[in-house]
Each structure stands twice: as structure tokens, then as C-alpha cells.
Design a binder for these strands. Structure first.
Lengths: 189, 189
DNA sequence: GTCTGCTACTCATGGAGATGACTAGTCAGA
DNA sequence: TCTGACTAGTCATCTCCATGAGTAGCAGAC
């Protein structure tokens, strides 16, 4: 159950509503985890039931009221416990990789299209992450921020996301080049 | 259901038994997907039931007999279909990232230990991937192999795995450095 | 001579995450 | 004035994936 801890970790940064939470877990950002709104609402309900977060109603004008949640002392203890527990290694897991694995045996046309699309998507996320990092560190350099800026946690996970997407983009591009040239060579044979 | 297609993609490289398959999907290699032996056996059963792979008994001396599977024509068609279908973007999803996200609010000692462990694990996989790539390309250079070596699919996925693990290792190391220095600064205050 | 480890596989159950379908009010623009 | 987009959230279901436990024969080590 890492989703639960991901939600807790996100709320450590300050009070958020389910909707705001969903914004950061859904498209684009997804710094360190990814989830659909429904999952988050469900998880928040469970977390509140278990006393790890507490919610309060915020009355708004001109838009629906919302419930914002913050981590309780028990919640923090749970984060502490989770952080200390040993983590299982993470694995790459990607439909696209499965498809590329079989590239020798299928028509590579649609595959190249998907790789291109993915490269563009990754590029978009790269820009997003770069902006986010800039915003977080403000006028400081990265080195300065890492020395004593706050919060470092989100900054570090953002850095990982950035590196991951750069890896994605670069790999997709080389895969496209390779597959294109091979298709060309076969076609011109 | 990407597991199913991952199995198919793996079998495109040639006949394999469930056990052999499990070897490559389990620890270490896990080129492009990861799964437990039980999942693979179950999936193979389903694939055979659906006519996407066909199995045959191989009698062995001095060790248990085994069943080896190969992809049928329908199986290949299914791979083709799957490859052409649009893929959903993949997301980073890692317990460790969740833990780092909350790094500002917890004791970083155990976290640093886990990051170090992960860096070592990644290093091990890097070496494994490098060997694998060398073995695949034989005497050719990477450029040569990518131009017309076979199979490219597995080579490309292996490259992605390598890059991913390098990213993991490097990120873990910087995270360790950052968290250590901060802990030191706080302690000596 | 027994113990550990490897090949080779099966069964059963749990739990997390994914998905589709819906409600309902507000606001900006065609 | 109607449409689409945004805020804010709920309910129900499902499928995949994860995990533990177990079997059984053979080989080599100590």
C-alpha cells in the first residue's frame, strides 16, 4: 500500500483538498507517484477513518465547498514507520518496452509513431519539471538549495522525475532512429 | 494485461520453459518487465488455453521434465495487434521516492541507508546489463549492431534498462550526499 | 548420510490499483 | 442561451498482479 503513504507524503507539504491532491497526482506533475482522483478520494476517506489525516470543511464563495486534509500526529508516525521499513526494489514496467522487445517480429510503423509520441510527452514533462524546480529554488542555485533550502524532499523527487523523463526522451529518440534506419535498409534491399 | 504480452514478447526470442522464463523475469535481468514465477506459469496456462502459445513436453535425463512454449501464429497476430494499439504513458512509481518526498519531516538515517542499498543494487544491475549487451553484440560495436544486428528489440530494451539503473544509481548517490550533509549541518548547529 | 540448493511446477488467496459512470454548481465564450 | 470547461466529489466494479505455501526428484557438499 504505497498509495496511502504517497498521499500522506503529499499532505506533509501542507493542507490540501482531494481535488488539489488529484491535480498533482494526475496528469503531468506526478512527481513521485501517480493516481486517479477516485483512488485519492477513496484513500483520503480511509486515512481519515484510521485517524492518519483529519479533514475540515472549507466554505467557499462562487464555487463548491471543499474538504481539506492534514496529517495528524499518528499520520506522521505512520510515515516515519513506513520510511524506516525496507523498500522493495522498483522495476521498469512499461507497455512500450514490451512492444519494443518484440520489434524484430512486427511492423515497426505504429511502434515508431508511439515512440515519437512518447518522446514528445516526455519533453513536455521535462519542461514542466524544470519550471517546478526553478520555482522551488527561487533565486538560489541548485547547489545552494540542496544545501539548506526547504523542502528538499519534493525537490529531490522532482529531480528524479526530470532525469527519468530525460532518459525516456533520449531512449525513445534513439529507438526511433534505429528502427527507421533499419526499416529503410530493409525496404531498399 | 501487459504481463500476457510481455510473456509473448519474451517467447518471440525462441522456445522457453516456464522455469527459464521465470529466470529472466525474476531477479536481476527483468529487461522490460518483472514478474514472479507463479504469475508466469499462470499466464502460460492461459496463453495456451487461448491458443496464443503451444507447449510441448521435453523429456530430460537427471532432472525433471519440462514444458517448453512457443508463440503460435495467433500469438504473433496478438503481438502485432498489441503493438499497434496505443500505449498509455508510464509513470515513475517507487516506494523510495515516496519516502524521499517526506524527507523533511522524518529521521533521515534509515532513508540514507535505503538509498545506499538501492544505489548498490542499481550498480549490480548496471553491470549485468552491460554484460548482457556485450554478449548480444559480440565483436561488433554498438553502432554496428544497432544498424543491422539481431535481435534489436531486446538490445534496445536492455539499453533502456541500463539507462534507468544508471539514473537510479546517480540519483540515489546525490540524494545520499544531500541528506547526509543536511543532517551534519543540523547536528552541528 | 543428511542438508542445502537447484530444476520444475502447482494451488489458493489477498489486495492494490484501474475504470466507467454520475452528480452539481459556476463561469467564460460562441 | 447553449456549450464546454473547471471545481469538487461519490459509487461500484473489476482485473490484474502479488504472495505464501507446498511438492518432488536429483546433485553435490560437508
Amino acid at each position: 500500500m504505497a498509495l496511502r503513504h504517497a498521499v500522506l507524503a503529499a499532505l506533509l507539504g501542507g493542507e490540501l483538498s482531494g481535488y488539489q491532491l488529484a491535480k498533482s497526482f494526475d496528469l503531468g506533475v506526478a512527481n513521485f507517484w501517480h493516481a486517479q482522483p477516485q483512488q485519492l478520494y477513496a484513500e483520503l476517506t480511509r486515512l481519515e477513518r484510521d485517524g492518519l489525516v483529519s479533514g475540515r470543511e472549507v466554505v467557499q464563495e462562487g464555487r463548491p465547498n471543499k474538504r481539506v486534509f492534514l496529517v495528524t500526529a499518528e499520520g506522521l508516525a505512520e510515515v516515519e514507520r513506513f520510511t524506516a521499513a525496507s523498500a522493495k526494489p522498483s522495476f521498469v514496467r512499461d507497455d512500450l518496452l514490451v512492444k519494443v522487445q518484440g520489434a524484430d517480429h512486427v511492423d515497426t510503423g505504429p511502434l515508431i509513431a508511439q515512440l515519437t509520441e512518447r518522446a514528445d510527452f516526455a519533453q513536455g514533462k521535462i519542461e514542466l519539471f524544470e519550471e517546478l524546480l526553478e520555482r522551488m529554488r527561487g533565486s538560489r542555485t541548485e547547489e545552494e538549495f540542496l544545501r539548506d533550502g526547504e523542502p528538499v524532499g519534493p525537490y529531490l523527487t522532482c529531480l528524479r522525475g526530470l532525469a527519468f523523463e530525460r532518459g525516456n526522451r533520449d531512449w525513445c529518440r534513439t529507438a526511433v532512429t534505429v528502427l527507421r534506419e533499419r526499416a529503410g535498409a530493409r525496404g531498399g534491399r
